[in-house]
Design a protein around this nucleic acid. Structure first.
Lengths: 145, 145
DNA sequence: ATTTAGATGCAAATGATTTGCATATATACC
DNA sequence: GGTATATATGCAAATCATTTGCATCTAAAT
């Protein structure tokens, strides 16, 4: 089960499985949404009412750094977190914030070019923005990618 | 000439060409670097010593919004600006911050998938991270994209 | 030269995120 | 199970990039 695996990964790396960490993972594992620290905090208060926002930040960072969970940046100034930690990308609706996960990585960089510059790529980030069916109304101009 | 064209675009859109705006464009047009607001401010003080950082922000935002200049986000918590405003992408060196511009857009999203979700993509962002020749020393692990 | 909408400077506010430090508590060990 | 101790947590205060309010200034239209 997802939440068991997530909690196990903490123990595996020598981190304590505290009540607050369990609650945070519980929240993330229980949704497919991509939550900000604030949102995690709000939802976690149900399971663990005294949990401090600072602790939420500290643990989301820890877990993202350990690649136990994933962190995404949709360019709106706050990080979002999700239970998935494998390499993938998203469509982000500028209208409602809805997120659709893209199954395959659509990026293929010209290897010759990269080699010419002797650059070693270790990671990349890609996110696409636009409007989902519900938010797409005439009036918001836009050229497809 | 680049700087003339940039300044003209301000006038074309009904914005005043102030001393400070001219200085900001002068700085951006004079380099291929991708500068933070702070960096622009520091360099602009040569041409226009009383120029306020707030004004730098206001104008960089205005010009980026008007697509007169480009804004890039390398995920380190501060925006960078460049004279180029056309669609392109970068390799960002995590060691020294050096930026290499990628000539062709390496992204091609599965159109069938997007259509299935009735999503209309209006823009996307992509940046690749890694180490340039100068910064690449054994010890920093990394899997190619 | 005059007018005035638009621009600037300064100080103070924001908002997300981080840090310092005293206190609390998982887990290793007996 | 009880105890020790390295780790976590909570709270308040600090950061850092960026934005905003407002009084003053100025580019550019007349």
């Amino acid at each position: 089960m997802l939440r068991v695996r997530l909690k196990q990964s903490l123990a595996d790396r020598g981190y304590r499985l505290t009540r607050q960490r369990a609650a945070i993972l519980e929240v993330l594992a229980g949704t497919r949404e991509h939550l900000t620290a604030e949102e995690v905090h709000r939802r976690v208060r149900f399971l663990c009412p005294e949990l401090n926002l600072t602790t939420v930040y500290r643990n989301l960072n820890l877990m993202a750094r350990q690649k136990i969970i994933g962190r995404v940046d949709f360019g709106d100034g706050r990080a979002r977190f999700e239970a998935r930690s494998d390499h993938h990308h998203h469509l982000f609706c500028l209208g409602c914030g809805r997120v659709i996960e893209i199954p395959a990585c659509p990026v293929s960089i010209d290897e010759v070019f990269v080699r010419q510059h002797s650059f070693r790529i270790t990671e990349h980030q890609f996110e696409a923005y636009g409007y989902c069916a519900d938010c797409d109304r005439p009036g918001s101009e836009g050229a497809p990618v």
